[in-house]
């Protein structure tokens, strides 16, 4: 009896230490018309449960590809991806995703869009609608519950997309430049909304962006990637106090963090430039 107790508490301990996402030695190869290209080259990183990680890098560095592979939408060439300890083969409901475009179903109202996931997982219409209504309130769209996507602004559509991804209560939320297509004001508001939301949902979040400011405001940790082939250059821990808002962007501690990141990016940019010059 005693033994059993001890072992069960040990397994609880190990479960707590187990990362939410483990990416090990991930390489992704694309077939192009000029042969094969290595898009992502031996990338490894862990994300702790509840952690908010941002991946930044220039366009074409493979950051979205890494995210799609964690989502199960793309297949790794080599390496392993474990989510909550089990290997990812295909999309799964405990991993949610928000894309750069909202990709809302145009023939469904806001409520039916958000209820889609729970419906597909076998919940009744009443249950699914209740879940949707809670999330609609959470993203502040109560007045638009019965509206159709084409009547909403870009920011509102992306809020619906986030609520829809949360409806299946994913353990992991993947976000692929979700605010990239929004104007600067909307983007700042959305970042603050996401920070608020994050305190309530307790999901592990991996967020891809090319905006270094966005990454530092949001993340616990920033992974900086280089292009051609995609590699992780540096990890920067963001030890800024929470709760945060985008107003932190003028604080000295923020600016020194940003300088660290920019130095890495600039050095890499110069290296890439000189390399292309030499060849």
């Amino acid at each position: 009896m005693k033994l059993a107790l001890a072992s069960s508490s040990a397994s609880v301990e190990s479960a707590r230490k187990q990362p939410a996402i483990q990416v090990s030695n991930l390489s992704i190869v694309f077939d192009t018309n000029r042969g094969q290209t290595i898009a992502v080259d031996r990338v490894s990183f862990d994300v702790a449960p509840g952690e908010f990680v941002c991946i930044v890098g220039p366009s074409g560095c493979g950051k979205s590809t890494v995210l799609n592979t964690i989502a199960g939408l793309e297949v790794p060439f080599e390496g392993d991806i474990l989510v909550e300890g089990s290997r990812v083969y295909s999309p799964r409901p405990d991993v949610g995703m928000v894309f750069q475009q909202p990709h809302l179903f145009p023939w469904k109202s806001v409520r039916r869009n958000i209820a889609h996931g729970p419906r597909m997982l076998g919940k009744s219409r009443t249950e699914a609608n209740a879940i949707a209504d809670d999330l609609i309130a959470m993203v502040g769209l109560k007045r638009f519950a019965d509206a159709y996507p084409n009547t909403l602004s870009g920011g509102m559509q992306q809020r619906v997309a986030i609520a829809r991804a949360l409806a299946n209560q994913p353990r992991v939320l993947l976000m692929d430049e979700p605010f990239g297509a929004l104007d600067a004001q909307t983007r700042a508001v959305m970042q603050d909304n996401l920070l608020e939301l994050r305190d309530r949902i307790k999901a592990t979040i991996v967020f891809v962006t090319h905006d270094i400011d966005e990454a530092i405001v949001l993340a616990d940790r920033v992974l900086i990637m280089s292009a051609g082939p995609g590699r992780i250059l540096r990890e920067v821990a963001v030890k800024l106090p929470r709760p945060r808002s985008s107003s932190i962007m003028v604080e000295p501690i923020y600016l020194s963090l940003k300088k660290d990141c920019l130095d890495v990016i600039r050095a890499e940019g110069l290296r890439a430039f000189n390399q292309s010059d030499a060849s």
Binding site: L73, M97, H116
Partner: peptide
């Protein structure tokens, strides 16, 4: 394709993809 990927991420089974997404 974006709609199909979004539907896949929400757990839409392949056999329901036709009526839920493709037809509409």
């Amino acid at each position: 394709r974006g709609l199909i990927r979004a539907a896949l991420m929400l757990g839409t089974p392949r056999r329901q993809m036709l009526q839920e997404i493709v037809l509409l």
